[in-house]
Amino acid sequence: MSTSVATRKRRRIPLVDRIALIICGLVLAIAVIGPWIAPHDPYAVNLSQRLLGPGPEHWLGTDINGRDVLSRILTGARTTLLATAVVLAVTVVIGVVVGTLAAVGGRVVDEIIMRITDVGLAVPSIVLALGFAVALGPGIGSAIIAVSVSWWPGYVRLIRTVVRETMQSEFVESAVALGVGRRRLILRHVLPNSLDILYVQVTLDVAAVMLVISGLSFIGVGAQVPSAEWGAMIAAAADNVTSGWWALVFPGLAIAITAIAFSLVGDWLRVLRDPTLKQEN
């Protein structure tokens, strides 16, 4: 009887991960419906209500321009998460295409691609973003391009490694022996058995990319100040942190909680995929 209880318990999602999953769901929901549930106009400047503390009218207070912080966080979720989603979509597609090419394209192609990724990995995204901000003008677009440019080499390397591993498996050799052509071999046999790892990696990267994008907005090369992007909100509030800490702390909490939640879910997926990582407690 005790074993059956233990089995049932093991199958259940751990409490922390369940909370993290719920938070991720909530954040994603807010990203979609945030502007409609915001109690105030996130951009309405009202100088008579500047820097009000958290209270019944403005739950999370107002910023230096009298804008409702809660409304701005709810609205800004969309900007931050959309930018993150665009970066991840672009880098995953590049990663799968270029990584597969490196894995199956022969030594010369592999060598060329790997040296390019070395360069990409060597340049920090902040520096790249500063460059793009100068070239294209600061804005969320520049931040997206900059982070994508510095993020894709990681996916190329990941996919290259996994595809090379899958190419060694016996069912791939069996497909070759059957007479399956290269294109079908890669599309039907290799890739479907290689891409599972992306679920984990992408979830883990949501947190990391979000932090970089918010960070870029904070230093002023990402989303610009009136925008309700979380990092930009922190940047704008940093000047009056002593007189209105709430305008800085709450967007910061939004970033931290979202990042932690996605990291936890990513870790949970990773353990789910590879049970040997599970810790006994």
């Binding site: 498996s169 016996e170 069912f171 050799e173 069996s174 497909a175 022996a177 059957l178 007479g179 039907r188 046999h189 479907p192 058995n193």
Partner: peptide, 17 residues
């Protein structure tokens, strides 16, 4: 390969899951 086919040793790893 149409004229020559192979059956591998381990049917647990030689079939695409």
């Amino acid at each position: 390969r149409r004229d020559m086919q192979v059956v591998f040793q381990d049917p647990y790893s030689s079939l695409n899951p």
